[in-house]
Computed example of a mutant assay.
Amino acid sequence: MEDTQMDEGNVVLEMETPVADVFVPPSIHRDETLRGETYTHFSPVPPSLNASESDPSRGVPCVLGVDEAGRGPVLGPMVYGVFYLPITQSEPLLKTTHHFDDSKVLTPAVRSSLMETLCIADTDLHDTCGWAISSLSARDIGANMMRPAGATYNLNAQAMDATAELIQGVLARGVNVREIYVDTVGPPAAYQRRLERIFPTVKITVAKKADSLYPCVSAASVCAKVTRDAALEVLYDAWAQSARERVGGGGEEGVDGEEVLSWGSGYPSDARCVAWLKQNMHPVFGWGPECRFSWGTAKDMLETKGGIKIEWPADEESTNPLTNFLVANGNGRMDTDELGAWFGSPAGLEAF
């Protein structure tokens, strides 16, 4: 039984691991990705939707799905995706013709092929559907979660804001969105109420396993997953190139036989990911913008596996006036020479 479970776990990790020839969609903003920045990308609105920014209600009634990829990994961004198309086309186009499904049950090759078709002009997907993503960088996720007490911006809140921003962006482009389906973050009812307060005129359904139930959510799942896979490859290629240059080789190993490790799927449960983290941890700076420092895997490794502990002085508000830092003379009065060193000496009339 244990062997079977392990094999099943390995299959899941392989399905989550980006393939070398993954399609790189236009949602990959290379510069922002390498700088560890969060960004959004919106596809052009198909002309067939008759979008009207001044009066969206005149456009074709559309359904919009929301899903994410990469919530759990310690490496790489978390990507939220939205996908919209005419309500009447959702089932026949996405489910019957193109067989969209939850991205986790589709092979990397199938996901990549669906995304590529979506991005090719003059195809039924490209001409009928629109999509957008928000790539929340690992650096920003970690920084937000590690804010001082009382100001923490947790992952659920970041996810909620990313979802609302994407939906608002689609509405702002004049798309007549009538129905929204969302794969839940936390309790579905509470999440749905929050979205209904933000978008009171739209029918909203938040459900568990929505990516398997609603084709538009399945399509959003594919957009998010392919974008994350490609982003992970961009980050890995940049790191690997730097590693090869450091060890003096051009292949998978350097001249001294030092292997340039794969980081696998980026999940903490992936032995390849853990091995990469251990081998490439800087004792002070940890890792680059590809790593979520707020994850227990990274924090524990820095604290117990050779990371240098740095203690910052207490952040106490000072009640001392600026003049307390100036030197007084023997009479208890401020030395004018000292003040002059700080602010400059006063000029006499003779200067004019």
Rank of each mutant, 00 (worst) to 15 (best):
T304V: 11
I141L: 09
G248S: 00
A149W: 06
A240P: 07
T304M: 14
G142K: 00
K104R: 10
L85S: 06
G186H: 07
R292M: 00
E233A: 11
E14P: 02
M146V: 03
N280F: 10
A172H: 11
P215C: 01
P46N: 05
T319I: 10
N280S: 07
V206Y: 10
R71T: 01
L195I: 12
W239R: 09
G186C: 09
G332R: 07
L136C: 02
S103M: 06
G257P: 02
T152S: 00
V79D: 01
D55K: 11
V202I: 14
T227P: 02
L85D: 00
I120W: 11
E311S: 14
A275Y: 07
W263Q: 04
V206C: 13
I120Q: 13
A219F: 05
N50V: 12
K305Q: 15
G251P: 12
E245N: 13
K305H: 13
L261A: 02
D122G: 10
V74K: 05
V327C: 10
L235E: 01
V105P: 07
L261D: 00
Y181N: 05
E317C: 10
W263H: 09
T38S: 09
T336Y: 15
L261I: 02
V284L: 14
A220F: 10
Q5Y: 14
F83T: 01
D140E: 07
Y181H: 14
E179D: 08
P188A: 15
V255P: 06
L93R: 03
G36P: 03
E179M: 09
L75S: 00
C291Q: 06
V24F: 08
F343R: 06
C273H: 03
G286W: 04
L64R: 08
D67A: 10
Y214F: 12
F343T: 02
P148Q: 00
R58E: 12
E196V: 15
G59A: 09
G257T: 05
A162M: 04
E196A: 15
L232Q: 04
T163G: 14
N156V: 05
G248N: 00
D21Y: 07
Y267L: 09
A220L: 08
R228G: 01
L93A: 03
P289D: 00
Q158C: 06
T128I: 09
E68G: 05
T184W: 14
R244A: 09
I198G: 09
P26Q: 02
R173H: 13
A69V: 08
L339H: 07
R246Y: 10
Q89M: 13
C216H: 04
G340C: 06
R71W: 07
V45E: 01
D7W: 14
F23Y: 05
A298E: 00
I310F: 12
G36S: 04
L322N: 13
T97C: 12
A230Y: 01
A298H: 02
G340A: 14
G76P: 02
N156E: 03
N331H: 12
R173E: 08
A341C: 13
Q279K: 15
K203N: 11
A243M: 15
G264N: 00
V63Q: 05
N324H: 15
E8Q: 13
V60K: 10
P77C: 04
G330M: 12
V206W: 07
K95E: 07
V217N: 03
A210S: 04
A238E: 06
P215I: 00
G264R: 03
L349K: 14
L349I: 13
A121H: 11
M334P: 12
M15E: 01
A240F: 08
V12G: 07
